[in-house]
Write a protein that binds this DNA or RNA. Structure first.
Lengths: 213, 213
DNA sequence: TCCTTACGCTACGACCCGTAGCGTAACTGT
DNA sequence: ACAGTTACGCTACGGGTCGTAGCGTAAGGA
């Protein structure tokens, strides 16, 4: 976020929160219409009904602005209890795919990641506002599976954390790659096949001990 | 590639192949130094010792140029027989990771993918010059595993193809996500853990029937 | 009321874009 | 050898975006 700690500045005119919202909304809209490369600060300012200088007072540039504009979209991901680990995984895969189908998300995510390869602070910004926030889904899903007895209870906290990171990268990575690189759809069939692979692996006999549905 | 079919134009001065190579090389260099957003056609031309107009005679713009400049990097991936499916997977994961560690690759791949979300022809260009070409690794690895008896021989060709696509997305996606989004290293430990997950899954008892290290 | 900060607006030099026009270079067929 | 054809390097151009500075005004706090 554009650091707006109320304790830092108590005096003077406060920053307009409506402007903040309008700018982020305008950024997403502009992203849909123009795409990343043709998105300009001037255009966003016009759409938001705000002066261009106001944008630069809050964000250093295009990168930071877009990260903030898109980060909130990921918060809508949820993990309703579907009764089994397989169903939960499949559900979150389809949800994540639906999120990435939205033009502002797919465009912005990849573009910002691309830019972050040369910008350490931007990379951390992405990590904090997007990646770390969504690991909650993995942790929640695993917790439930353990309660159901579908997964062994991890004793070593370090190993447990590493495993959660791994699973997160595998799920998110596979969906992103399928959708944005391979350019193929993520439908129910694919989600089911992927879930099966994730739970059972492709080792010998994997296809025979298939978990429920 | 910049369509250079020798049959189309037999007469006149031929296009300089040295210039082609110099331009692609200069593009990669500029990508390393400046990153995607600050890379300009003029800069590439200067580095290549070529007129800017020459670039536009061969490529429509930045996107197409960068795709061609980076595509060849992926061809260096190989799959030497390491004796087991697990070892083969682990090997290709590390190789792919090493490729993505190179600044020109990581920057370019993500940037071009981002741009492709709004450009159908660019998406196809990526699919053909990068994605499809590298599926050979999956097919080769599975063929070997089947010969060793590690995997069942697929009878249905359609299913077999779908599975190959899935595996490709999972492997490539996980590595890309780990490196570029989560911004964590892909080392031997991670590769081993990932391989174990891919082969055995995370279902009940998966960790006990681990395949040969 | 004074102080402080945010806002909208305008203007600016710097840079990059993509194209046009020109003269020259390289290769081909007769 | 010569004309025909295509690629090249170079220069110049209008159009657009960048990021900043300066100004007067608006909105809160002491």
């Amino acid at each position: 976020m554009s650091d707006s700690d109320p304790r830092t500045s108590r005096t003077g005119r406060p920053r307009s929160t409506e402007a903040d919202a309008a700018i982020l909304e305008a950024t997403r809209a502009s992203l849909v219409d123009l795409g990343w490369s043709k998105l300009t600060m001037g255009d966003v300012a016009t759409r938001a009904g705000v002066a261009k200088t106001t944008l630069y007072r809050r964000w250093a540039g295009k990168n930071e602005l877009v990260v903030d504009a898109v980060a909130v979209l990921f918060d809508e991901l949820e993990l309703p209890d579907r009764g089994s680990l397989a169903a939960d995984v499949q559900g979150v895969v389809l949800q994540f795919a639906a999120l990435l189908e939205r033009p502002e998300t797919r465009t912005a995510l990849m573009a910002v990641v691309a830019e972050s390869t040369r910008d350490e602070s931007l990379r951390m910004r992405i990590r904090d506002s997007i990646v770390e926030r969504q690991k909650r889904l993995v942790l929640e899903g695993r917790r439930r599976a353990q309660q159901r007895g579908e997964l062994p209870v991890e004793t070593d906290a370090v190993v447990a954390n590493r495993t959660a990171d791994l699973i997160f990268d595998v799920i998110a990575g596979a969906v992103v790659h399928r959708l944005l690189v391979s350019a193929e759809p993520v439908d129910t069939d694919w989600a089911r096949q992927f879930t099966l692979l994730l739970l059972s692996g492709l080792g010998p006999g994997a296809m025979e001990r298939r978990p429920g549905s």
